[in-house]
Design a protein around this nucleic acid. Structure first.
Lengths: 193, 193, 193, 193
DNA sequence: GATGAATGAGAGTTCATTCAT
DNA sequence: GATGAATGAACTCTCATTCAT
């Protein structure tokens, strides 16, 4: 186990810089509208150097996802919500989502765009992300149903509604903070008079 | 007022053929992953001919939307739902959506993808589509609320939840028929025990 | 020798229309910036019809030159000038040029442009035009020199200076009427104090 | 202040090579008859590489003008002529022109062709070139007139005659050395007996 | 005489990627 | 680690020309 040399440190910082830039540009303009040259120009390096750090553009994208994945945050929120009563838990979840989306707007937009793009499944990271989040949420709902706090129902439905609603707002670049409590209220109580 | 000649018919059928092919390929692979040459090859014609019928690739895309727009169907469904009581109306709407999405899966996917893409608003058709549908739905909800059938609430919330949920399912190429009644039930009654 | 039928007349008028349009557009934008489609659109006919009247775009250009050639006018002016004393003759020539250039601005610009273009000699009309004009002018000058009205000199020099000056003005779309007397005065008297 | 490396030298030489080839082909065949592929083939490189050195074909053309501009030579000649008496000055100018045109035949043809083309003023270099030369020459003539060496007259006339005559000869690919003294003699003394 | 659908080569340009230096 | 010269295929789009109708 050797010490990181000066070079290692520089390399690491360059890698990070590239990931940052890639995240920003990809999210803003869409992956296919950002060329390797654009990235290099933004980083003030030669285009070729990018291939020293990443095997390909796709690989760079995957690395962006890996590095900035909002998964840990999501998992934390889900963890916390599962100890609360249903309504509060749901509220907590929605608030947590809002907070995460606020901080990690760029990756999430990127992730969502990739998730919906036709070539989707090519990126393993993207796919596994979705699977993980959905699974964890379903668990929690199941527990609430078992505890009699919620009607017996397919939790996938609720989860899907909530997440879809937020996702679309995010993609359309519209503010979601204000709507979140209303989403939660609707899901809990319905709209029937 | 002259009869369409043989030539006119042939031209019309070629135009239609191109629109069909464009719709199919664009929806399947995404607009930017389909080249003019791909389209020409699929239609078994010379690439240049496409420009005889359409001024540009964007123009072709716009023509696809215009020809296959699901807007009339959506408007019809919304029209019908507004005469029903809330729950049935919502059910009708959801079923109508399911039916339309079943028949017009390809355009809708295409439309949705364009709607969410970073260059979005470049295509007027796409933008006006969203605006129209949302406006019509809001009207109907307002009426239900005024009639005391629904709680006073912001109908945009409900509309957004419902439409987003269906849209995401469509984009992920997942079956939505089964989930629709559950979406409706949740929205009407909530999930609280 | 048969009478021209209705059809012959129509054909002739169409041919003339096409030549007119070609002249106007070619002169204004340059031959290579005018497509067959542009011409057809301007004439309100189908592109293919042009090939019924002319074998190719080059052939059309040649026909334009033939039909609108300013050669007869130039020859007339040269004819007239040769009967006058030198100074008056030159003045007459210059004025004649000005007049012709005023009326036939478009063909002359076109002719000049072709004359100077790299593919020049491909068009026989263009080349023979220049040769003819120069030959006729030289003759006249020779006569004046022989008559002792002008110094012995190479008339090609004077002719070239005069014609080049006018030509360049024409090509640069600048007014030449005002300068013509000064060209003549300079050529006759020089500028030495 | 660093040394040019091997790579820098190679790049510079490639740039030069491309400019040379562009100059030669453009002058010979005309800009619009030379494709990027032609240039690449002549240089024995991939077409894309040209865009590594120049942003566009127009940019390449502009760079050709900048690199090979005969403006410094013209300015030098004009500078020198302005210190001489009129006749000698004019002679010097004409000889200088002949010399420059001999050495820089290709650029000048190119420049002249662009100057006369319908799209002309698109290239700033071209326009400013003409303006500069004309202005400098007018100055000099004004001084000669003021000094009583030349008749009072509009120097633009003389300048235009002289330059047009040479330009047309150049464009027609005809030898001009022999005619130059005669141009000068005519302009100074006229041709009247 | 007239149409316009169809061709197919070729235009300028972009871009992910490689590799000698 | 870093450079940027070099590649070559692919892109959208234009155009003179042909020919069945």
């Amino acid at each position: 186990m050797k010490q990181p040399t000066q070079r290692d440190l520089q390399a690491e910082s360059r890698r990070t810089q590239l990931l940052d830039i890639a995240l920003a540009l990809f999210a803003e303009r869409g992956v296919e509208n950002v060329s390797i040259k654009d990235l290099a120009a933004e980083a003030d390096i030669a285009p070729g150097l990018i291939y020293h750090y990443f095997a390909s553009k796709d690989d760079l994208l995957a690395a962006v996802f890996q590095r900035y994945s909002p998964l840990p945050e999501f998992e934390a929120v889900i963890e916390q919500m599962s100890d609360l009563p249903a309504r509060e838990g749901l509220q907590h979840f929605a608030n947590g989502m809002a907070a995460i989306m606020g901080q990690k707007r760029a990756v999430i937009r990127l992730l969502a765009r990739e998730l919906l793009s036709p070539r989707a499944s090519s990126l393993a990271v993207v796919v596994s992300f979705r699977a993980t989040v959905v699974a964890r949420l379903q668990d929690t709902f199941q527990r609430w149903i078992a505890a009699g706090e919620l009607k017996p129902h397919e939790p996938l439905v609720t989860v899907h509604m909530l997440v879809s609603s937020l996702l679309i707002l995010l993609l359309l670049e519209q503010p979601f903070e204000l709507l979140i409590p209303q989403f939660v209220a609707t899901i809990m109580d319905g709209i029937q008079a």
